[in-house]
Amino acid sequence: MINLFKHEIKSRWIAVLCWSVGLIFFGAFYISIFPGLFEQLQSLKDLTIYKIVGMYLGSMEGYIASVILAYIPLLLSIYCITASTSTLAGEEESGTLELLVAMPLSRVQIFSAKAAALSIAVSLIMVLTSVGNSAALSIIKINSSINISPFDLFAALMSSLPLALGLIMIGLFLGALLPNRRNSAAVVTIFLITSFFIKNIAEMVQSLEPIKYFSLFNYYNTTATIFTQGPRLSDIAILLGVAAVFFILALICFNKRNITVGAWSWQRGKMRN
């Protein structure tokens, strides 16, 4: 199992590097332009459209929280979706999964090695991205009065990791449940977008407030309060709980799956009369 894990890690290092560099540049760019944009953003801060997409542009803290903290995990979720759905469903389609399940390994071992490698890859991207963005902030801080320390930003960005892990496990689960990668990627993407808007709309419309609990983003703070209060442990616990539940569900589905068949679950293994 450890050899499979090493292979999985090896096969992901280029993606880890590229995504980290990309997200560092994204964050550094938006952090660096804020001082020049501050006055213009003041006039835009109350626009509904920004509220719908969860952006609060009235202060440096609000700007960093709503741009960096919200959009870096959202961009990373593209990697989470593509990588998690290609891990089982994609490899089944390409045919390499058939070789692996023909090895003297249990499906639990195969799945665990893949899920662990993917989780570590995403964790590495988040660590590198958080370090890079914190470094960018510390450089910007020299010429402006920003009340966020690089460590605050690092901790706030890292608090999105449980969200990414939850998304990965949902992707793995759907990859093990649905017939192919395309279907699983489509469902996770719809889930992600719906989840993102549910949270923001629920915060704007009081009568819809209870639905926010169904959004994964409800458990990830993208407001300036995270810099003063830090992430809530209960939120982290809920997201890790979601990840754990979907890990187990994915494992059950993968154990039952007829590899190479690519059929819907209700079409698999029923006896014809």
Binding site: N3, L4, H7, S11, S94, G95, T96, E98, L99, L100, A102, M103, P104, L105
Partner: peptide, 25 residues
Amino acid sequence: YLPGELSLYPSMRASSFFDLLGSLQ
């Protein structure tokens, strides 16, 4: 096992592929 529809890891060297399978076996 040699599958009929053989798929390999395209970016790997054949030698690394043999090492991987050997280690998994």
